[in-house]
């Protein structure tokens, strides 16, 4: 929708990276590939006018807003769009760190129904970090126009995660999405994520690492993901742990 008050002029200097939330206010993160309509979903849910535009990489600022559903107020954080969470760039790092260390109550991954396969690459990476997430399959109208049909139930079953089809710009499916978010926050809607199984060599290394990590840092974090990052030689994560848990 073009530049808005919030995204131009003096306002660009006012960045809000810290999530200010009441303790009771559940924090919902919006993640996804670039240009899948995350900002449109964000605007539709919060009623704000974040800059939306049809090009990848537009959301460079982290936007936040709130929405109410059935008497509960939720805080929504719009993360930068990324193709992966392997932290090749600053944006990927922001998104990844928020989902892992920020520990949002629910992560909503917005996907583009017209190119599901590419979006699933990110989905499988997020699944590795947190089990508390919902797949919002957006742009269903465009998929239909392109004559691409997706078996939502089967997809949900294969992922072990609720999948909500939406057309955010026409506000279709948003009530279902809110219902799913509310259900997950209340703990009524649970997931059984079906994680990627890697090579035997890697899985064995993970089996070896996870218990040892657990003895050092306890069960507070998702240890399988942490182990994957250690194997990856992710210097940032290593330094982070080193600082927090060594000596």
């Amino acid at each position: 929708m073009g530049l808005t008050n919030q995204s131009s002029g003096i306002n660009v200097l006012r960045e809000r990276f810290n999530v200010k939330s009441n303790l009771e206010q559940p924090v919902i993160a919006l993640a996804g590939n670039p240009n899948t309509g995350k900002s449109t979903v964000f605007n539709a849910l919060t009623g704000l006018n974040q800059h939306t535009g049809n090009w990848p990489g537009k959301t460079v600022l982290q936007a936040q807003g709130t929405f109410s559903y059935k008497g509960v107020e939720y805080r929504l954080v719009d993360l930068p769009g990324t193709y992966s969470l392997l932290a090749n760039s600053a944006e990927e790092e922001v998104a990844r760190d928020f989902i892992y260390f920020g520990n949002p109550d629910v992560t909503v991954v917005v996907g583009d129904a017209t190119c599901l396969e590419r979006n699933l690459n990110l989905v499988y990476q997020i699944m590795e970090i947190t089990p508390k997430w919902i797949f919002c399959l957006n742009l269903m109208d465009e998929a239909k126009r392109k004559k691409v049909y997706i078996n939502i139930e089967k997809l949900s079953e294969k992922l072990g995660i609720p999948v909500i089809p939406t057309v955010a710009r026409k506000e279709e499916g948003l009530t279902d999405l809110k219902e799913a978010i509310a259900g997950m926050v209340r703990g009524e809607l649970t997931t059984r994520p079906r994680l990627v199984r890697y090579d035997r060599e890697i899985e064995e290394a993970l089996d070896y690492l996870v218990p040892r990590l657990s003895s050092v840092i306890g069960e507070r974090y998702n240890l399988r993901w942490l182990a994957l990052k250690l194997l990856d030689g992710d210097q940032q994560i290593i330094n982070h742990l080193q600082a927090q848990f060594s000596n």
Partner: peptide
């Protein structure tokens, strides 16, 4: 994994 899942659920 992504390729396999996508292939399973998409009808073109």
């Amino acid at each position: 994994h992504a390729e396999e899942t996508a292939k399973d659920v998409i009808i073109r």
